Simulated scan of single mutants.
Amino acid sequence: MTQPRRNALTPDALQMMDTIARSGSFAAAARELGRVPSALTYSVRQLEDALDVLLFDRRSRQARLTAAGQELLSEGRRLLAEMDAVANRVKRVSTGWESELTIAVDGVVSRQTLLELVEAFYALRPDGQGSPGTRLRLRTEVMAGLWEALISGQADLAIGVGRDLPPHAGIEQQPLGEIPFVFCVAPHHALAASTDPISDDQLLPHRAVAVADSAQRMSPRTVNLLPGQDVLTVASMQAKIDALLRCLGCGFVPEPLAREHIRAGRLVVRPVGRINAPVRLGYAWRSSATPQPRQAPQGLALQWFLEQLKSPATRRALLERHQGQPSVD
């Protein structure tokens, strides 16, 4: 009985489960996979028969997973990621260049500087004929979501991770720098007229604007929010600044990101009573805690980006250059 069950867990079957779960219905999954719904339903029944379990609750019109189905989906996604990782390592051994490199960045990182690094990478000519051929994937994460993407294998390099995070096996870290946060409000906000440091009691009646932590499995982090305070939650730091400009609340933002608005008077900085120390950030990448003789060497694409990050000017630019501001030398 073990062999048929093993044979049923093919990459196609695992991908099918993932597609159904993501799309929310058999019909939508069938369209995405280029199959007719009846054929997809038949494939699911075959998988259920082979595993002798019920994967979907047939009483629901939606593709609702049973507990067994949820477990298969979770483990299946992990297996698919491992398969991709193996294929990537094999390719890396052959050429030295990864077939794909995923870089996750926090919302406080300068997109302009990051894209300039990408542009320089694509200009490489390692063979004298063309670019390395590594496909780059850029993704934005927030707070713990950045660390989660790295340790889960969804990212190879993370830029902007908090330096207060504990060490993790297989992850190496280096400092990126410090970024100051300032408390900002719109000029017509009720707190804009305050010149003395604003206490927590004075902040409590006013709505705060917060950026949602993008972590899905790790415990999300919250910063500078008071118990019982009304909160408007947005998806990115830029969205937070936009909300502050519209006087939808108050909050702490990275000074470099808000600098142009502060200089133009569209936002005003006010002192607060609580400790507001600069945030220490770093960059981290996946490596091996226990290298083996036959282990694939670190990919050349990751090596290239790590080499660029050794430059103090590059690290400063990643934290300082926003909205067309010149690089800090």
Rank of each mutant, 00 (worst) to 15 (best):
residue 94 S to W: 01
residue 94 S to V: 06
residue 95 T to R: 07
residue 96 G to D: 00
residue 96 G to Y: 08
residue 96 G to V: 05
residue 97 W to I: 05
residue 97 W to P: 07
residue 97 W to Y: 14
residue 97 W to E: 01
residue 98 E to M: 05
residue 98 E to H: 04
residue 98 E to I: 01
residue 98 E to S: 04
residue 100 E to I: 04
residue 100 E to S: 13
residue 100 E to V: 06
residue 101 L to Y: 02
residue 102 T to I: 08
residue 102 T to N: 05
residue 103 I to R: 06
residue 103 I to S: 00
residue 103 I to Y: 02
residue 103 I to N: 03
residue 103 I to L: 08
residue 103 I to V: 14
residue 104 A to M: 02
residue 106 D to R: 01
residue 106 D to V: 01
residue 107 G to I: 01
residue 107 G to F: 03
residue 107 G to M: 05
residue 108 V to F: 03
residue 109 V to M: 03
residue 110 S to L: 10
residue 110 S to A: 08
residue 110 S to Y: 10
residue 110 S to M: 06
residue 111 R to W: 06
residue 111 R to A: 09
residue 112 Q to G: 11
residue 112 Q to S: 15
residue 112 Q to A: 15
residue 113 T to H: 00
residue 113 T to Q: 10
residue 114 L to G: 07
residue 116 E to Q: 13
residue 116 E to V: 03
residue 117 L to S: 03
residue 117 L to E: 05
residue 117 L to Q: 11
residue 119 E to F: 05
residue 119 E to V: 00
residue 119 E to W: 04
residue 119 E to T: 09
residue 120 A to L: 11
residue 120 A to E: 14
residue 120 A to G: 02
residue 120 A to V: 01
residue 121 F to K: 07
residue 122 Y to P: 02
residue 122 Y to I: 02
residue 122 Y to D: 11
residue 122 Y to C: 06
residue 122 Y to L: 12
residue 123 A to V: 02
residue 125 R to N: 10
residue 125 R to T: 11
residue 126 P to G: 04
residue 126 P to K: 06
residue 127 D to Q: 04
residue 128 G to R: 10
residue 128 G to Y: 04
residue 128 G to W: 08
residue 129 Q to L: 13
residue 130 G to M: 04
residue 130 G to R: 12
residue 132 P to R: 05
residue 132 P to C: 06
residue 132 P to K: 03
residue 132 P to G: 02
residue 133 G to K: 08
residue 134 T to I: 04
residue 135 R to D: 08
residue 135 R to H: 13
residue 135 R to M: 10
residue 135 R to E: 12
residue 136 L to Q: 07
residue 136 L to G: 05
residue 137 R to G: 07
residue 137 R to P: 01
residue 137 R to T: 13
residue 137 R to W: 07
residue 139 R to N: 01
residue 139 R to A: 09
residue 139 R to G: 11
residue 139 R to C: 09
residue 140 T to S: 04
residue 140 T to F: 13
residue 140 T to Q: 11
residue 140 T to R: 02
residue 140 T to Y: 12
residue 141 E to K: 12
residue 141 E to C: 08
residue 141 E to H: 13
residue 141 E to S: 09
residue 142 V to Y: 00
residue 142 V to N: 10
residue 142 V to A: 01
residue 142 V to K: 00
residue 143 M to Q: 11
residue 143 M to I: 11
residue 143 M to D: 13
residue 144 A to Q: 14
residue 145 G to L: 04
residue 147 W to R: 15
residue 147 W to S: 14
residue 147 W to K: 05
residue 148 E to K: 11
residue 148 E to H: 10
residue 148 E to Q: 13
residue 149 A to L: 12
residue 149 A to D: 13
residue 149 A to P: 09
residue 150 L to G: 12
residue 152 S to M: 13
residue 153 G to Q: 09
residue 153 G to H: 11
residue 153 G to W: 13
residue 153 G to L: 13
residue 153 G to F: 13
residue 154 Q to E: 14
residue 154 Q to Y: 05
residue 155 A to D: 08
residue 156 D to A: 04
residue 156 D to L: 07
